[in-house]
Amino acid sequence: MLQVALTPMESGEWISQRSGAVRVDIPRCHQLARQIMDSIQDGTIGDIEYKASPLHPEGLSDEQHLNWVFVIDTLNFSFWPNDNEEYYVDYRGNREVGYLAMCAAFMKAYEGDIPICDAGWMETVTEEDLGKILVSGSGHAIPMLHQRARALNESGKWLKDRYNGQMMGVVRACGTSAQSLLRTILTIESFRDQTSFRGANVWLLNRAQVLVADVYSVLKGSSTQEFRYLVNYIDIDTITMFADYRVPQALCHLGIMHYSPQLRLRLDNGEVMPFADDMEIEIRGCSIYAVNEIFKAVIRMRLNDYMGVNWYTAHRPIFAIDIHAWLLQYRREHAQAVDAAVPFHRCRQIYY
């Protein structure tokens, strides 16, 4: 297995302590934690889990569903538009954009009997055929089509050669450890989201952690006892938020993160940042740190609020990945206000 120099949680703290362009407001983290707690108590946070989305097929076996999320998460990167060529797909009367547009495109392909869940298809699908599936409703190609085809071929070969084409085989091999699953996924090159910052090897691992979280979501809703046992991860709380380009927007809009004038100028000018640019790393690393601080504050509040009560069963469990989902949903619901307040950072890269 690959050795991670600094885990995403450690990387977030390391980066935030040495960041010059991004600052995390700890008091605001604690204030937002109370808002998250309200969402736990009224149940709204439960509506934003992976399986709540209508853009994943129904009627799949657990094995097929895990292969589905493997395909989706292999390609879950870089949806922001080139020159205002928004990536969208019309499906069942709705216009979906970005990641949800890709899900809609694959739903159409699945309903058209294309074997999306088959590792052999993943390994051999051509860039041309993948482009036909993922084409935007405007006729434009999805961003980074070549890189997506290459990543999908790599993932399909890995799954077929090592695990007989079944993501369930990966899950079984890793037992009930989210970290074991994460390390195994990192044997696929396209998931190794790492760089260096201020003398340390930092791993942010956006897509790899998304895949772990989606596996967790699929299996915890299973009706099969074995599968429910497999997802009994004692270390799911070690999976951090997913360091992407949309959640930092929400964190800035909510006053959790603050950008320097120099960074804000680059964003306002629409500059495309190189991967591993210091400011790009700081945005992503500080996002991880900020969400982890919110997560820790939520845990403290739960302990205080439910002292003397079985708080494990009073409300659903909460993890950093849930806070990420809450922030992403917040960004979608307030898209116009968030976009007007702060641009997202642009970086064309397969890792997020």
Rank of each mutant, 00 (worst) to 15 (best):
A33V: 07
L230R: 07
C174D: 02
Q329L: 11
T184I: 02
I321C: 14
G175C: 09
P81A: 08
E280L: 15
M279S: 11
G139L: 14
I323H: 06
S16I: 02
P8M: 12
W80Q: 01
Q249G: 12
Q329R: 13
T124R: 15
S136N: 12
T184W: 02
P248V: 06
L251W: 03
A208L: 02
D268M: 15
G156W: 05
D237T: 11
T126G: 12
I234K: 13
P143A: 10
C252R: 15
M307S: 03
I256P: 02
A200D: 03
C117I: 02
D161L: 12
D83Y: 06
I236Q: 13
P54S: 09
C103M: 05
N67V: 01
R302G: 09
R332S: 11
T124K: 15
H258W: 04
Q3T: 13
A101H: 05
V22E: 07
P27K: 14
E280C: 15
G221K: 12
S53G: 06
N232V: 05
R266N: 06
R284T: 07
V298R: 02
S223P: 02
M167H: 03
V135E: 13
H146I: 03
K132M: 07
N76W: 00
T313H: 09
R183G: 08
N310Q: 10
Y229N: 09
S136K: 08
Y88T: 13
R23W: 10
K108M: 00
R264G: 03
F77E: 00
R172L: 01
N164V: 06
A320P: 03
D129Y: 05
A314N: 09
D42E: 15
W121Q: 02
W68Y: 08
N310L: 11
T124N: 13
L159P: 03
K51T: 10
A297Q: 10
P274M: 14
D244A: 10
Y289M: 11
S260V: 02
S217L: 10
R95T: 13
N206W: 01
R92A: 00
P261G: 08
K157I: 15
D214G: 11
A33M: 08
R300Q: 13
Q64V: 00
